[in-house]
Each structure stands twice: as C-alpha cells, then as structure tokens.
Amino acid sequence: MARIEILKTYKLFIGGQFPRTESGRFYALKNTKGTPIANICLSSRKDVRNAAQAARKAFGGWSEKTAFNRGQILYRIAEMLEGRRDQFIAELQAQGVGKAKAEKEVEIAIDRIVYYAGWCDKYNQVLSAVNPVSSSHFNFSVYEPTGVVGIFAPQNTSLLGLVSVLMPVIAGGNTCLVLASENMPLCAITFAEVLHSSDLPGGVVNILTGTNKELADTLSSHMDINAIVYGGEDSEILKSIQENAVSNIKRVIVQKKDWVKPDSQDLYMIIDTQELKTTWHPIENIGGATSSY
C-alpha cells in the first residue's frame, strides 16, 4: 500500500512563532483545476495588531545590530532558500506556475537576497554625507531605518514579489509585517520557515495571510506602524491606504515593477524606508598661527 503523505498546515508567522489566526477562520486555496490544495489562515485585525506589536518589539535589537551582521543574516536566508529550492518550485507549480518559470523565479529570488545582503553595510557609505557647513561645526548625515513597516506583497507572484519588496526593508534595519499574496500565499508561509531557520531574530519579519480588503484599513491606520510598502495593484485599496496613513503621517511607498527583471532591484529601494539623520557638533576653534601645521 502506498504511503500516506503528511500534509502541511499553513499557519501565520508572528514574533518568530507559527500560530494559527486567533480568529480561527480560514479560506480554501484551490489549484487551477479547482482541487483544494491547502487551508490558508484568514487573518483578523487582531492578528495584524499582534504582528505590529511583535515587529515593534524586535525593532531595537534588529536596527542596532551591526550592518555587517545584518548582511550575514540576510546571506544566511539565501543559503536556506537555496537548500529548499525544489520545495519552492513545487509549491509554485501547485499554484499554477509553469516549471521553467518556477525555477527561474526561485533562482532570481535567491540571487536577490544575496544582492541585498551585500548592500547592508554599503548603502550608508554610498549615500551618507559630511556636510561642509559655513560655521565651526562638524556636520554629517546618515540613514537610519524608518521603524516598523507594513508590507502588502505583490499579488501576482508567490515568492519573488514578496522577496523583492521585503529584502530592502529589512536590509535597512526595519522590522515589518507582511500581507502575503491572497491567491498565491503558499510560498510566503514556507518562506517564513526559511526565515525561521536563518538566525533572523523573531519578530523582524511577520507574515500574515488573508485578504487585503479586510486588513488594509487596520494596517494603514495603525498608530505604531511608520511606513507602508504597497506592492499590489488595486488603486482603490491604495487610495484608502494613503488616506489612512495620515493618522500618524506614515510614509507610503508604492512598488510596482516587473520583478523578474534585473533592474527591479536597487539601492534606492532600501532608501525608501530610511530616514536621514543629520548631526551637528562644534569644532573647537584652535585658530591663529598654530593652525598651519
């Protein structure tokens, strides 16, 4: 008799753990033939709040890690994903992506993580500045993470879109909560398992599944989320997100790109969720004859 396969329960990823939605609700994901392939958590507003809280808690630790260390952890994510290549290809195929395309998507996703891993300890070198002010002060500007970022993953890809909008956010030291693609949520949760085994501290990335429509308001009006990255294509939802963002002047960044293309990754996507800080300090005025050494 053939062996009975163990099926995976797809759950959420909050604070480094895999809870079910507190609401107990789910939706059935079907393949292109209409056969159910998994039950997916239908996250509630409470799940969003829990995820935001976990992300805030993780912010201090993650943002204060050395840039080099963040780079190593991101690289480790790529290593873990490489090891699970076949699993992701299979999951993409289960969600209707052709084999060749699925292979390409996973490969680009891995390479993209390596790309952003390398940026961690370089973007500030490239884009910070020492400002030559006309007074006796030393003045410099450096980038710092914005804080907690709410991410709406692109809808039409299961893995690559998510990776493309997520990596620049955490490479820059932010923590986040991500709403996975509604129709293609499988890879998001499996990717959470990759994150989980990559030395990424719990809470840095929190992944929820559910509907954009239901959760967009809670996410975009949450007072402890500093920025929103919107990777979807629904202009009505985007408008309401932008309106809700007013509550605490969230930065709203719209990321709409063809994620397969090489130019859909760059340094400035990291800067999108950064704040520039400028620091002044007086310079003791030595002056006079002694200053010509």
């Binding site: 500045a129 400002n131 030559p132 002010v133 006309s134 007074s135 002060h137 003045n139 500007s141 914005t146 500093n226 605490n248 002047i249 930065r251 704040e275 520039l276 800080k277 400028t278 620091t279 002044w280 300090h281 007086p282």
Partner: peptide
C-alpha cells in the same frame, strides 16, 4: 531628523533638515 550635540538651532544650506514620524517626511537642504 536633526541632532544638535553641544549646540542648538544651527542651520546651513549644505545641511539636510526634516523630520521623523509626525514631523513629516522628505529633507530640505544639502
């Protein structure tokens, strides 16, 4: 967005100015 150490309220065209959180976004200067 701006930190003055052992000084305060200094401004310069080369020095970016602007806030975090509800103090707004974007920088002016520099």
């Amino acid at each position: 967005g701006v930190i003055w150490a052992n000084t305060y309220n200094k401004f310069d065209p080369t020095s970016p100015f602007g806030g975090y959180k509800e103090s707004g976004f974007g920088r002016e200067g520099g």
